[in-house]
């Protein structure tokens, strides 16, 4: 019996030590998440180590393929700053109550397109004919958000449609095969493929008129933001400088293309559709009172979950690091 007791004590002691695990957070390096095949001006600063010099710490860049993975990595403590996380994964993370916050807008770009199969004779003027049709949508992504925004703007009843959850490459393929009547797509190659056999439901101008757009955010862990506001501010400063210096010259494009792992023409066309706002513009338009950041996040939140309220999400949007 005594032996058992001894073992029990030993077991509980080891359980205790497991639980304590002191965390020593010395910010001598900052870990940043970014997307491959997603050209941005600050990649020049990244390659030239401007961030490292300016912040005085090592900046480690890790590439990710989805925004959800960025969230996971931030929660696991491996990433401090997620550069250009999609709005959708950010909002989903906030809805789950994760300790993250949005500190800036990385870039604004046109909403993802929904391609209607050519030959159906459907466009934005008679979009209600989409009712009863089959649509390929990557569920709970920015493309899903765009899809729902289009349908709301064009007053189409979504409940009558068969919605098929497909990744963009698969959706493009299904559109080409005629298995679906419309496919909502993100990503350069898939969009190109879908554009061969379909036409976007709205033109760029129509999208702007209807107020449908997307933006990627710079999100950080709350821990990093409270403990290292100086580093975060410098990070945003450098990003701002890189954006301001962006003139899409050949040398710049080459550098970005090399870092993004893309060809120069692809980077050029991809970045042509992106707007990189200055910090002041962001403060004026996105992070002010009733700014776009909060309203867009709230709109997205309600689309993904019925029990979402905008006020909660707005609390995690903080433009105070932009100055």
């Amino acid at each position: 019996m005594k032996k058992y007791l001894k073992n029990m004590v030993a077991a509980s002691v080891s359980a205790c030590t497991l639980g304590i695990g002191t965390i020593v957070s010395a910010a001598d390096s900052v870990n940043v998440a970014f997307f491959l095949e997603w050209g941005t001006p600050n990649q020049i600063s990244k390659v030239d180590k401007v961030y490292d010099d300016a912040m005085g710490v090592d900046v480690n860049w890790t590439d990710f393929s989805t925004g959800v993975q960025m969230t996971e990595a931030m929660l696991a403590g491996d990433i401090d700053i997620a550069y250009s996380q999609g709005l959708a994964p950010f909002v989903t993370a906030i809805q789950q109550g994760h300790p993250l916050k949005m500190v800036a807008v990385a870039m604004v770009y046109e909403a993802n397109d929904c391609f209607i199969k050519n030959g159906l004779g459907i466009d934005s003027s008679n979009a209600s004919e989409l009712e009863g049709k089959t649509v390929a949508v990557p569920i709970n992504t920015m493309a899903d958000f765009a899809f729902k925004s289009y349908m709301n703007a064009l007053n189409v009843d979504m409940s009558t449609m068969t919605i098929v959850d497909q990744a963009p490459p698969d959706g493009a393929k299904s559109l080409a095969d005629g298995a679906v009547d419309m496919a909502c797509i993100f990503g350069g190659n898939s969009s190109k493929e879908a554009g061969e056999v379909g036409t976007p439901i709205m033109t760029s101008q129509q999208k702007i008129d209807a107020g449908i757009g997307s933006f990627d955010v710079i999100s950080v862990t709350e821990k990093f933001a409270t403990e290292n506001p100086d580093l975060l501010k410098t990070f945003l400063d450098i990003t701002d400088e890189a954006n301001a210096a962006w003139k899409a010259t050949d040398a710049q494009l080459k550098k970005v293309a090399a870092d993004a792992g893309m060809s120069v023409p692809d980077v050029k066309s991809q970045m042509a559709g992106m707007i990189f706002m200055s910090e002041q513009e962001q403060l004026d338009k996105y992070f002010g009172k009733n700014g776009i950041a909060a309203s867009a996040a709230a709109a997205l939140g309600t689309l993904f979950s019925d029990s979402s309220d905008g006020i909660t999400i707005a609390k995690t949007i903080d433009g105070s690091f932009l100055d």
């Binding site: 205790c16 639980g19 300790p99 709350e222 999400i313 609390k315």
Partner: peptide
């Protein structure tokens, strides 16, 4: 209780709510 019955990083207060961190998450 925190040490023995709550493995992981405990409860963290985010801007909007309290969440479980570690295996509880």
């Amino acid at each position: 209780i925190d040490r023995i019955l709550v493995p992981g990083d405990g409860v963290v207060k985010s801007k909007t709510q309290c969440t479980e961190q570690g295996s509880g998450r």
